[in-house]
C-alpha cells in the first residue's frame, strides 16, 4: 500500500512536468500539423539556463526564492527567443514542402541544439541546488516533499493560465481559428504567421518552466536530458489526443502515473524477470499501444491517413 501511494505521488509530480512539455507539442501540432522533435531540447536549454543564473545568484547570498524567480525568468526569456528563432529559420521556409522535410529538419535542429548546449555547458552533469527543505511530509504511509507540492502547484497554475489565454482572449480565439482552418482564419484577418510564431513562443515558455521543474526534481541537469523527456512528453500528447490541449494535460498526468506505477510494480508483475531498468520502455510501449488501438488518443479527433 505504501508503495502504491508513494508511486501515485511520484507519478503526479512527473506527470505534471510531462503535461507542460506535452502542451508545447500539441499546440504546434494543432496549428501546423508538425511534430516538433526539437521541443525536448528547448526544455533542456531552459533547465541549463536557469541553473546558470540560479547558482551564482544563490551563491552571492540572494534569498533562494528570488534567485529561482530570476533563473526561471531568464530561462523563459531564453526559450521564448529560441522557439521563435527555430520556427523562423528552420520550419517556416518548409511550410509547403513535402511532409518528410520538416520532420527531418526537426531532427537536425535537435542535434544542433544538443551539441550547442554541450559546447556551452560541457559534458558534465550539473547538480541542481537543494532549495527547499528536503524533509518530507508524511501522507497515508507515503512521503511528499515540498518540492513535489511546488511542482504540481506551479504546473496547475501554468495550465490554468494557458487555458484562460486560449479560451478567453482574442489571441486565443485567433489561435483556435488558425488551428481549425488557416485559410479561413487568414480571410478573417488573422495573421497566420504571427499566430504560428506565438504558438512556438508560448510552448517554449512552458518548456522552460518544465525544464526547471525536471532538473529540480531529479537534482541534475545535463545537455542530453531533452530528447527522451521530449519523446515521453510527445507520447503524453498522443495519449491525450494530439492537437487537444486538455488531452495533453490529461495524457501527461496519466503517463506519469503509468510510468511510476509500472516502475514500482514491474518486478512483481513479471515475477522478477524485468527490473525497474525498464522504466523507459513503458512510455514507448504506451505510445505504440495507443497508436495502434486508438490513434486519436483519449480526447482527439480521428487522425488516420484516410481522413
Amino acid at each position: 500500500m505504501d508503495t502504491f501511494v508513494q508511486q501515485i505521488i511520484n507519478g503526479l509530480t512527473l506527470g505534471s512536468i510531462y503535461a507542460l512539455v506535452a502542451l508545447g507539442y500539441t499546440m504546434v501540432y494543432g496549428i501546423l500539423g508538425l511534430i516538433n522533435f526539437a521541443h525536448g531540447e528547448v526544455v533542456m536549454i531552459g533547465a541549463l539556463t536557469a541553473l546558470a543564473v540560479i547558482k551564482p545568484l544563490a551563491g552571492a547570498g540572494l534569498p533562494w526564492p528570488l534567485a529561482v524567480l530570476a533563473g526561471v525568468a531568464a530561462a523563459i526569456a531564453a526559450c521564448m527567443a529560441l522557439g521563435f528563432v527555430i520556427e523562423r529559420v528552420a520550419y517556416r521556409p518548409l511550410r509547403n514542402a513535402p511532409r518528410l522535410a520538416p520532420l527531418i529538419t526537426a531532427i537536425g535542429v535537435s542535434m544542433v541544439l544538443q551539441q550547442l548546449a554541450m559546447i556551452i555547458w560541457g559534458r558534465n552533469y550539473h547538480s541542481f541546488p537543494q532549495l527547499l527543505p528536503a524533509t518530507p511530509r508524511a501522507i497515508g504511509g507515503a512521503q511528499i516533499t515540498d518540492l513535489q507540492i511546488m511542482i504540481v502547484a506551479v504546473a496547475i497554475l501554468m495550465m490554468a493560465g494557458l487555458a484562460l489565454l486560449v479560451n478567453r482572449t482574442r489571441l486565443g480565439r485567433a489561435m483556435r481559428a488558425t488551428a481549425e482552418n488557416p485559410q479561413i482564419a487568414g480571410l478573417m484577418g488573422v495573421d497566420a504567421n504571427h499566430i504560428v510564431s506565438l504558438t512556438f513562443v508560448i510552448g517554449s515558455a512552458l518548456a522552460a518552466v518544465a525544464g526547471v521543474m525536471v532538473s529540480a526534481n531529479y537534482g541534475i541537469a545535463h545537455y542530453n536530458m531533452g530528447f527522451i523527456l521530449g519523446l515521453k512528453a510527445f507520447t503524453a500528447a498522443v495519449l491525450g489526443g494530439i492537437g487537444n490541449l486538455t488531452g495533453a494535460m490529461l495524457g501527461g498526468i496519466l503517463l506519469g502515473l503509468i510510468e511510476a506505477l509500472g516502475a514500482g510494480y514491474i518486478g512483481d508483475l513479471t515475477g522478477g524477470f524485468l527490473g525497474s531498468d525498464y522504466q523507459d520502455v513503458f512510455a514507448f510501449f504506451v505510445l505504440i499501444v495507443v497508436l495502434i488501438f486508438r490513434p486519436s488518443g483519449l480526447m482527439g479527433e480521428k487522425v488516420s491517413e484516410r481522413a
Binding site: D277, V281, A283, F284, I288, L291, P295, V303
Partner: peptide, 26 residues
C-alpha cells in the same frame, strides 16, 4: 503500425529502436 500517418510511424519506429536497445542492455 503501417496504417498510421507518416509522422506517427516515425515516432513508433523510434520507440521500437529504443525498446530493442533497452532490452539488449538489460
Amino acid at each position: 503500425t503501417l496504417r498510421l500517418r507518416g509522422d506517427y510511424l516515425a515516432i513508433v519506429t523510434l520507440g521500437f529502436g529504443e525498446i530493442i536497445r533497452i532490452f539488449l542492455n538489460n
